[in-house]
Amino acid sequence: MAVSTPSDRTLRHRLRRLLADNPVVLKELRGRMRGARAFIVLTIYLGLLGAFSSLIYVAVSESATRVSGQVNVGEIGRTLFGGVVAIEMLLVSFIAPAFTSGAISGEREHQTYDLLRTTLLPSHSLVWGKLVSALSFVLLLLLAAIPLQSIAFFFGGVAETEVILSFVILTATALLFSTIGLYFSARSSRTLSASVLTYALATFIMFGLPIVLGSVLWIIEPSLDNIQSVQAERAVIYALGVIISTNPAATALMSQYILVNQRTTGTFAYTLNNGQDMTLISPWVPFTVLYVLLTVVFFVLAVRRVRVIEE
């Protein structure tokens, strides 16, 4: 070898290849950011978010004053923050799939899919490009909302850690939901069916799964209580942990609760009924790991579907 490339240059080169050199990313972002559309979407999004925050502020400050006679400012801050994050979560879980569920089926509908397939563009670059361009806009929405979240700082009761945590959870949610959209888009020839399937799964994850798992637990929990064993108690707590970690909203709430009460974002000790301690981990960690893993799975499935040459 005549020239040896320093590793940092290779890394930068690779990053550049992953993000900037992907023709699909460039094309999608050019299209998405052109004209007034992106600006209008962002404005409406922030407008809605701002309106909701104001509503929450009015509602909370009213009730906070009335109940205790004196204003609990920290509570206003926390509620405001929680409210904004909740709305963001709802928006992200429904906006992210909207950007991706038409990504590949749309190429089929525009009859550009065959053109792309006969170029040298690898399947993974196509899927990756679609994901990055969709996510970058979702990330823009999330970043744009951080100032709104931060209004809570004026009232206190919210720490920077919570802002960061919420950002991580929202990003992981956006990541998985975008990739689910991509997967169904790669499978379907029509954007409509891809959207329906994506939203079905997204709705199931957001609302269905916690209801199903929660009811199962609710049904079996009394019988476990009767056993009165440490094992049963552990099992129930782990089961609860798993249920919480599958759901972004539950994860956010629980991680926040643990942060406030246990003063940790990592592991903490939980005391069982018999006085034994058991080590638990804040749900945002397993949640993030789970969502990133699922993202990888759906991404690989989408690439494989695109790579297939028709029989």
């Binding site: 525009h110 065959d114 170029t119 040298l120 563009l121």
Partner: peptide, 27 residues
């Protein structure tokens, strides 16, 4: 090969030069 199907694949949000630029990049 250079392939032209029996339909024109349209990207409705692209300029003429961007269209060629995109496919050149794909190649």
């Amino acid at each position: 090969i250079g392939y032209m199907p029996d339909f024109f694949g349209v990207y409705d949000d692209m300029k003429v030069w961007e269209y060629l630029d995109f496919f050149a990049a794909c190649y």
